[in-house]
Deep mutational scan, measured.
Amino acid sequence: MATGGRRGAAAAPLLVAVAALLLGAAGHLYPGEVCPGMDIRNNLTRLHELENCSVIEGHLQILLMFKTRPEDFRDLSFPKLIMITDYLLLFRVYGLESLKDLFPNLTVIRGSRLFFNYALVIFEMVHLKELGLYNLMNITRGSVRIEKNNELCYLATIDWSRILDSVEDNYIVLNKDDNEECGDICPGTAKGKTNCPATVINGQFVERCWTHSHCQKVCPTICKSHGCTAEGLCCHSECLGNCSQPDDPTKCVACRNFYLDGRCVETCPPPYYHFQDWRCVNFSFCQDLHHKCKNSRRQGCHQYVIHNNKCIPECPSGYTMNSSNLLCTPCLGPCPKVCHLLEGEKTIDSVTSAQELRGCTVINGSLIINIRGGNNLAAELEANLGLIEEISGYLKIRRSYALVSLSFFRKLRLIRGETLEIGNYSFYALDNQNLRQLWDWSKHNLTITQGKLFFHYNPKLCLSEIHKMEEVSGTKGRQERNDIALKTNGDQASCENELLKFSYIRTSFDKI
């Protein structure tokens, strides 16, 4: 039985969820670079991206490699990797027998973001014989899940209580170790020597080791999670996991709180800001991140802002960003909400898709409305799209047979046209069989910064309504002859009103 693990408890099935942008060198404390989270699957090609990484700022997932063999891993080693800020997950990587050479110096898994409450997941690794993470000293947050690894031993010899604050939620089941077939031998045991430290858990006094050649490092209890030197002297209180010299914040392997210019500090002093819960960055760093993602459509890219001495992905609820200094300031009234469309555009074809934009005031991208039916549609669209004030790209209304009016965009005031449909149009209306009105132009103002209007096959939309939009939106004169079809717009509506004058002759039985 794995020490510190839980057996036999019912657990939810383990679901495996399925960018080499360097964020800056980590400095003297770390020998390499800070790398983003990685999802490495199918083959070993991307694994080489770990070569210079000291910190993975995010998670590391290595999974679904069915053609790899043990010899493929023999020359692979990433000794610079010290810390993973989120979680480490391995799933069905064939041929991998140990992690001792792959990650010989991995010391800390912070667990800032977890995989279903777990910071370390080893699942269905069919050839893994031992973990071998002999320098792993601290899992700051989260638990361990090690399950269905039929060859995995050296679990009962690990004292997880020396690595985690609590072992109650560890789930370590259905491994070879369960069948008591392992016969784990710690260093020196074969020669009758006791080389590794022994600890007591559940009444068992057991030597602690990761492999037959690597003991588990056990520091004096007084050192807590700070770690200790090879001689057993406690590291500085700002260290986490390990250090090369005692009581020196510049000799830590990793930091308990924050890293700044080669030393570990309790908090980031001005003019620095907390970033990702582990390091200090200056304003320029946060500003660069903001600008890199301002026009990016890459998933996970955030326009970072500053709030409460932190550089964070977005302002919290009730705050909006001051564009001059990136500071989050309290909103006066309802907060603006910028919604970034991942692929640059979004099609609204149902109430469900409209709900995804609920509360958005600025759309960074283009909207395509293609709704053919739905219950209580006008009210639903207004509830979900009615706060949109600005669209950076274009607005396209296409084959939306259920629409009679666009009044559900009740606050839309600006279409920038930074991206144009077919390279020309910022407003595009095609084949809307029941569209009769755009907006009530006596109450609604709309500016279209650039781009043209396109109207074709809107049989109940009168040309007068379209011409009014040209005047109000500032697009009059931009359109070419064929942009607004004269014969297919309003051709099934009563669009022309003329005053009919009647004269009559009164007659009676005795007068003409």
Rank of each mutant, 00 (worst) to 15 (best):
H28D: 10
L29F: 01
P31M: 03
P31Y: 09
G32S: 03
G32E: 08
E33F: 01
E33W: 09
E33A: 15
G37A: 15
N42V: 07
N42S: 10
N43Q: 09
N43D: 06
N43A: 05
L44I: 09
T45K: 11
T45W: 14
R46I: 03
L47P: 03
E49Q: 12
E49M: 08
L50W: 02
C53N: 00
C53R: 00
S54K: 04
S54G: 01
E57D: 15
E57H: 13
G58K: 00
G58A: 00
H59Q: 12
Q61F: 07
I62G: 01
L63K: 03
L64R: 05
M65S: 13
F66H: 15
R69L: 05
P70F: 07
P70L: 12
E71A: 11
E71Q: 03
D72T: 12
D72E: 15
F73S: 03
R74H: 14
D75Q: 09
D75R: 03
P79I: 03
K80G: 10
K80V: 05
K80M: 08
I82G: 05
M83D: 02
M83I: 14
T85D: 01
Y87A: 01
Y87V: 00
L88Q: 00
L89K: 01
R92Q: 08
V93L: 12
Y94I: 08
L96P: 01
E97W: 10
S98I: 02
S98W: 01
K100C: 13
L102R: 01
L102T: 03
F103V: 03
F103L: 03
P104W: 00
P104E: 01
L106H: 02
L106Y: 00
V108H: 12
I109K: 00
R110L: 09
G111A: 03
S112E: 15
R113A: 05
F116I: 11
F116G: 11
A119N: 02
A119C: 03
A119Q: 01
L120H: 01
I122K: 00
E124L: 02
K129Y: 08
K129W: 07
K129G: 04
E130A: 06
E130S: 08
G132M: 01
L133S: 04
Y134L: 07
Y134R: 13
N135I: 00
N135E: 05
T140D: 11
G142Q: 01
G142L: 02
G142S: 02
G142F: 01
S143H: 13
R145N: 10
R145M: 08
E147D: 07
K148S: 15
N149L: 00
N149A: 12
L155H: 15
A156T: 06
D159P: 12
D159T: 13
W160A: 02
W160T: 01
R162V: 08
D169M: 07
D169N: 11
D169G: 12
N170A: 10
N170P: 06
I172L: 15
I172H: 04
I172G: 13
L174C: 13
D178F: 09
N179A: 09
N179L: 06
C182M: 14
G183P: 09
D184C: 15
I185H: 05
C186Q: 01
C186W: 02
P187Q: 03
G188T: 05
T189H: 15
T189E: 13
A190S: 09
A190C: 06
K191E: 09
K191P: 08
K191N: 10
K193I: 08
K193A: 03
T194R: 07
T194V: 12
N195Q: 09
N195K: 11
N195Y: 08
N195R: 09
C196G: 14
C196P: 09
C196W: 02
A198R: 10
T199D: 15
T199F: 10
V200G: 04
I201K: 06
N202T: 10
Q204N: 13
Q204Y: 05
Q204S: 05
Q204H: 13
F205K: 10
E207H: 15
R208F: 15
C209T: 04
C209M: 02
W210S: 09
H212V: 05
H214F: 12
H214C: 15
C215Q: 01
Q216T: 13
K217H: 05
C219A: 06
C219E: 03
P220Y: 05
T221R: 05
I222A: 12
C223A: 03
K224H: 08
K224F: 05
H226V: 11
H226L: 13
G227C: 09
C228E: 02
T229E: 06
T229Y: 03
E231G: 15
L233E: 10
C235M: 00
S237T: 06
C239Q: 01
G241F: 03
G241L: 02
C243F: 01
C243H: 00
S244F: 13
D248E: 05
P249G: 02
P249M: 01
K251N: 06
K251V: 10
C252P: 00
V253M: 05
A254T: 04
R256N: 10
R256F: 06
F258R: 03
Y259A: 12
G262W: 02
G262C: 02
R263L: 00
V265E: 00
T267A: 14
T267R: 01
P269N: 00
P270L: 05
P271A: 03
Y272P: 02
Y273I: 06
F275I: 03
F275K: 01
F275T: 03
F275D: 01
F275C: 02
D277A: 15
D277W: 05
W278R: 01
R279P: 00
F283Y: 08
F283S: 04
S284W: 13
C286W: 00
D288Y: 05
D288P: 01
H291T: 01
N295Q: 07
R297C: 05
R297G: 10
R298G: 11
Q299E: 15
G300H: 14
H302A: 10
Y304P: 02
H307W: 14
H307A: 03
K310D: 14
K310W: 13
E314V: 04
C315R: 01
C315P: 00
G318W: 08
T320E: 07
M321Q: 14
N322G: 06
L326N: 13
C328S: 01
L332Y: 05
L332W: 14
G333R: 05
G333W: 03
P334S: 08
P334Q: 10
C335H: 07
P336C: 01
